[in-house]
Amino acid sequence: MSTAWESFVAAAPQVADAPTPELREALARMDREGRDAWPELPVAAVDFATRLAGCLDPSTPALPQLQRIPAADLFLAVACASGDSRAIATFERTHARQIASALRRMKNRHLLPDDFMQILRRKLFVGDAQQPPAISRYAGQGAIGAWVRVTALRTALNLTRGQRPPERGITGDEDLFDFTDDAPLDPEIHHLKTLYRDAFRRAFLDTLAELEPRDKTLLRQSVLHGLAVQEIARLHDVHRATVSRWLGQVRAQLVDGTRRALRERLDVSAAELDSIMGLIASRLDVSVARALRPTDE
């Protein structure tokens, strides 16, 4: 019967080369943290240590990596991966809100929460012939809550498009346009949209197509995904004030470009165009607001 430390050393090659007391201490601390967070869950110290070792990238030093792993999250994942029903119940209780929020953003009215939970549960904790339980792939890089949201969203995406392979990948700008365009909120806009539907659509999409990929990503993150400015800033490693300014520029580019393209396509006076563009600009704002609202109640 080997100790947790021995299993850890055995499973992590770079530790085997240099087993320091600091590492040993870190391991003990993480084990303690996990147990303090979930005292009712039975996880063998050896299992936890082995899993921790598995999370390490052998090409870089172990200690800093170890220190960044959220011990309590990984502990729960290990417990769930062992199939312990109490652990799974705990997991669902703890992360129900995360899952629900990811699902809410799917805007899919046909996806019944109960069915979805069943499918997600199977994916997370049971797996199938090709895939081991997904929970066993959580490697402590980032909070488990975020990981669950991503997994839930991906599962929901896969379900909605009838199991198309995930590397389907590249889509056009239609999604952005759809978002800007769906559900008329007031009769006037509806009227204009039907009147100029094609021209507006093409003008908008042409303009979008000319945006830099990164600018488009910014727009998508803000409008379509409804990310807050500070969240976008985090993804781009810049300050949030910078993101605000960028977004302002991209939006201005979009509106100006649409205006120009629309003017090319339509035979309307400048004043009329102005009023149309005013409405379009306000629609962009509405879209942003909508993006921040719950979509599926």
Partner: peptide, 18 residues
């Protein structure tokens, strides 16, 4: 930048408090 699906998943992960 190119893959809309991944962009969506990244956005999901980036949310600070859902």
């Amino acid at each position: 930048d190119a893959c809309a699906e991944c962009a969506g998943l990244v956005a999901e992960a980036a949310r600070l408090d859902p």
